[in-house]
Nucleic acid binder design. Structure first.
Lengths: 349, 349
DNA sequence: ATTAGCACTCAAGACGAGAGAGTGCTAACA
DNA sequence: TGTTAGCACTCTCTCGTCTTGAGTGCTAAT
């Protein structure tokens, strides 16, 4: 559907005003604030048209108009220009990242903070499961009488460990031998490909050191399991308290519950994620819980898998700013991941 | 101040009713619900006395009474009997703990969940800084060309690590030698006692391997620094949405902000913590932000240092239940820490 | 010392009037 | 034919007033 210039201008005015004030905007307000050379009456006619087309709606007959979700969608698709964060803000982000470069955890935290701070919406970051990175080495390290550490290093330098208890008869050199065995078997495989059957054949090979092997396998199994699934980091959840649409306690509760645990949020995002910034407005979202919110998100690539970053806000959202910020941050993450290979970052669950 | 039996009974009735309903309770309600053999008029007289003494107050002249903070304090100090969680609930907790025994992180999470679930208040757990545990060993482990892992193990089995880059000329056996050196110097010391001066003298001793030493020291320094400070875990923060006293957005915001980051909450608790369950009611709290809330908390002992667990709720709180639950959980944690020494838990930041 | 009775107080909810913002329609105009 | 001014109409929001009801304090009787 193509709108003529004037209608587009009016739609934009209504959106900008409504996003800023959360109140319906009337014809007078449009001519006053946006200095069109037409009268309020004309605007009214145009607005009535826009309403017929579904881009605007009226809360009640004698109120101003507010943009419908379809209106927002049209604006986002056909008119919007992203507003990128200022140079100073980008500067700040870089500083944060440099300061925390040692700890992947802190990096993620820092990015989340930045996103929510700059935009005033709740931000989320989904770090892809470690399962998809490649096995690089496994070491068994004695740490005290009767205990050893199973240390797994992946290709991108993620370190994972589990403690196991071992018989006292096992010496350091035995542990090393066992470790080497694992390495020969698994090096270069994806963690998700390390099947139990592999583990089984390995076990048969080494009956005499069965106990250590068993425990190591168990630990490995455990590492690959649940807790190292995708990680979700949420920041600035309380920003939604600022939005007048959530003055209602029930709504508020439902939304905040989404943020309190990791699971629900994951369910809300599409599994497959397209290139660039994606925007889901209100009802466009699949999940019931989030049909009165909007998402602005993007994927970033790390170690072959996709992670996700994004913002959650009310339908009445500053999409231009949100999209600009998400896109900028996505680019910075990509740089960080793929470019600074010299000293791969230290990961830590 | 000693109250006679009847006044105590009335005070208790008012407290129980008010805690349950969040509404002022009148004289009629007291006689009706608590079946005293006295008339409403008598109760009114007694209530007027209790008000004079400061144990009750009236929101306005023609409303019922609500307990003052002093009233709650009297009840807590002189009348309250703790209500412990049911056997089934304790059973559930034990099950949670067994399931997650591998990961200290999960244990803490589980306990937090339990506390907030059972009581319907927000719970917090403060895990003491790792600085206070004793240094047991440091190892330098080659993980790939030009990179090594500094691995620190403490007496209670907390594992910390940092990656460093090393010159390619350094061999595995060199790393081991350097590690041994550290061990001789530090074994048995508290991490907080490992001073930079020690590190310095160590460095002088080994000019030739300076680079590795430097990096290791840096890593160690880093490990002892900020991120491994006390850790705060909060659970069930959204429970406060249920309380009618926080229907006001501003209040709500202030409180939830306390929970969103770790820092503020720490500031709210007393540094030194006495034996047993401690209760801070409303204004008794030092920190401004929390003067309209109550705290019920206790310390637990781990590796020589004190950790803290507790609940945050409105002044109108079920202190009996909160105190009983906190005390029970504290005891369970103590058992877990000091008793099951056979397989010290795996810590992980 | 306790109680019944009664007048009094105050918050909260219902109701209605008035103001204000905005619309839709009509008729005039370029 | 598109634009505009004018005007009646609609609906929400805000006050102020009234009413209701719960609960008190006081007094006098037991």
């Amino acid at each position: 559907m193509i709108l003529d210039e004037r209608k587009r201008h009016i739609l934009e005015s209504v959106i900008k005003d409504y996003v800023a004030t959360a109140e319906p905007v009337g014809s007078r307000a449009v001519v006053r604030k946006h200095a069109l050379n037409i009268s309020a009456a004309t605007v009214r006619n145009e607005m009535a048209d826009l309403e017929d087309m579904g881009y605007l709606e009226q809360p009640h007959t004698s109120a101003g108009r507010i943009p419908s979700e379809k209106g927002f969608r049209y604006y986002v698709d056909c008119m919007m220009e992203n507003e990128n964060p200022s140079d100073e803000q980008i500067e700040v982000l870089h500083k944060i990242l440099e300061d925390s470069i040692q700890e992947w955890n802190d990096v993620v935290q820092g990015i989340g903070h930045f996103l929510s701070q700059v935009t005033n919406y709740a931000s989320f970051i989904i770090v892809p499961s470690v399962k998809f990175s490649q096995f690089q080495s496994l070491q068994l390290i004695p740490i005290q009488e009767g205990q050893a550490l199973v240390l797994v290093v992946t290709d991108i330098g993620i370190i994972m460990h589990r403690k196991i208890s071992i018989p006292r008869s096992i010496k350091a050199r035995d542990l090393q031998a066992i470790g080497d065995l694992f390495n020969r078997a698994f090096r270069g495989k994806r963690l998700s490909e390390v099947q139990r059957s592999d583990l089984q054949s390995l076990r048969d090979e080494l009956k005499n050191r069965r106990q250590v092997i068993d425990k190591s396998l168990e630990a490995l199994d455990n590492l690959l399991d649940s807790p190292h699934d995708e990680k979700v980091v949420i920041s600035g959840a309380l920003n939604i308290l600022k939005e007048p649409e959530f003055k209602d306690m029930d709504k508020l509760r439902r939304i905040l519950t989404l943020f309190e645990e990791d699971g629900p949020l994951k369910g809300v995002l599409p599994e497959q994620i397209k290139e660039g910034v994606d925007i889901r407005i209100g009802q466009e979202n699949q999940a019931e819980d989030i049909k009165e919110m909007s998402l602005v998100f993007a994927g970033y690539r790390t170690a072959g898998e996709m992670g996700k970053i994004g913002l959650i806000g009310p339908v009445r959202m500053e999409y231009w700013k949100a999209a600009g910020t998400v896109e900028s941050v996505r680019r910075i993450i990509d740089d960080l991941m793929n470019n600074s290979g010299s000293d791969p970052k230290l990961f830590k669950k």
